[in-house]
Amino acid sequence: MQNSALLKELADCGSPETLLVAIMKHHPDLCAPVDVEAIARNAGIIEFRVSEAEGPTSAMMADIDKTKGVILCAAGLSAQRRRFAIAHQLGHFLIKAQRGDRHCTSRDLGENRRDTPRRKEEMQANRFAAGLLMPKPLFTTFVDGLGKPTVTHLPAIAAAYNVTLETAASRYVDLTQAMCAFVFIKDGIVRHARPSRSFPMLSIRAGEAAPVAVLSANPNDRIAWLPADVRDWVPVSRGVRPPKLTMQIFSKENGFQLVMLFANAAAERRADEEDEKLATQSPKFGR
């Protein structure tokens, strides 16, 4: 059932962030997992359908003024992917600048680039979806309660919020202050990676073989922090001190592996300061 007060406030919002603030204001009792369909109905979605068409993972159809909409999800989607697809299409429906019906592929639902108008709109819908399914206040409190970062936190987050591991990883790296990255591997091949904002640029790419140290891990191994060869993961330049990395490897019997890379931010800052101090104190000899 539509919430007229919410609809009025949403009409004045222009960004995913302001939309989320308005929704949280009208749903102060939100808890995990968020009832995304109830919120979508409050915001103007009148029906959810199963799409049998091949191609799109999800779609959204709306009237010209976007006062009413219908969301379609492909048959066979897991509950977690369906929830994200609904939240993604709700983002398209509510973001004022995005006009017209939408037909989104699975790649669109993982887009985080903004170098073309289409990618930017998909990225905005994904940002909205992540913020709706894992509201920042709830999420940060939950993660803080888990303690120090560890790879096993990701399955716990995914279970609590009823989202995929990939969705949980994206939200985690967007909000964490830690220097970390998650790398998803299947059958020895890197599928994708998500670094936090402060983590160095990754050199490993989707489609490449995982490092030997990861391939040798198995599901029976105890999960522990291990030294990581920085050359396996990030570019190393001559004359530039590389970061000191550690890693944890979570392996399953089906060939799936999740790697968490970690760098101690405080230790990295101290090392940088020491390098700068040594450079300024080094004697310089003229010719």
Rank of each mutant, 00 (worst) to 15 (best):
D65I: 03
H153Y: 08
R127E: 13
S203C: 13
D272H: 12
P149I: 11
C180T: 11
C31P: 09
D108C: 14
A265P: 07
A59T: 10
T140R: 15
K96S: 02
F139Q: 05
N42S: 15
A85Y: 01
P149V: 12
A87Y: 02
Q98W: 00
A228I: 11
M260Y: 06
R113G: 08
V240L: 14
V70L: 09
A271S: 14
P137K: 07
A130W: 02
A178N: 15
L6T: 07
A210H: 03
I23F: 09
M260W: 00
G145M: 05
I189H: 01
E166I: 01
P242D: 03
R118S: 14
T140V: 15
T116C: 04
S282Y: 13
V190M: 11
G91R: 02
M179V: 09
G100I: 03
N264V: 01
L258F: 09
M24A: 14
I204T: 05
A263M: 09
H26N: 06
V236P: 04
D101P: 10
F199Q: 06
I86Y: 05
A159L: 10
A87R: 06
N42D: 15
A22R: 10
N254Q: 10
L245E: 02
G14P: 06
E52M: 11
E274P: 09
E17S: 13
N264G: 11
A79K: 14
P283N: 13
V240K: 08
G239F: 11
P235I: 07
N112V: 13
A59P: 01
P283K: 09
A130Y: 00
P155I: 11
A181M: 06
K120Q: 12
P135T: 01
I249E: 02
P149F: 04
A224V: 15
G147I: 02
A206M: 08
F199I: 07
M201C: 10
H92T: 01
G100N: 11
C73P: 02
D108M: 04
D65V: 04
D101W: 04
W233E: 01
K277W: 15
G100H: 12
L215R: 15
I64L: 14
I39V: 15
A169R: 00
M60K: 08
D63C: 12
R118T: 11
D144W: 05
R287Q: 05
K148L: 15
E122W: 00
M179W: 00
F139V: 10
R171I: 00
G44L: 01
A32G: 07
R205Y: 04
A267V: 06
I189K: 12
A97L: 12
R102S: 08
K284W: 13
I39C: 10
P117R: 11
S251L: 00
D275K: 00
A266P: 00
T18N: 05
E9I: 04
E52T: 10
H88Q: 08
T105V: 00
A224H: 07
A193E: 02
P33I: 06
P149D: 12
L138M: 15
R231H: 15
R238E: 11
L132D: 08
Y161P: 03
M123P: 05
H27I: 04
F139S: 03
T164P: 02
P200E: 11
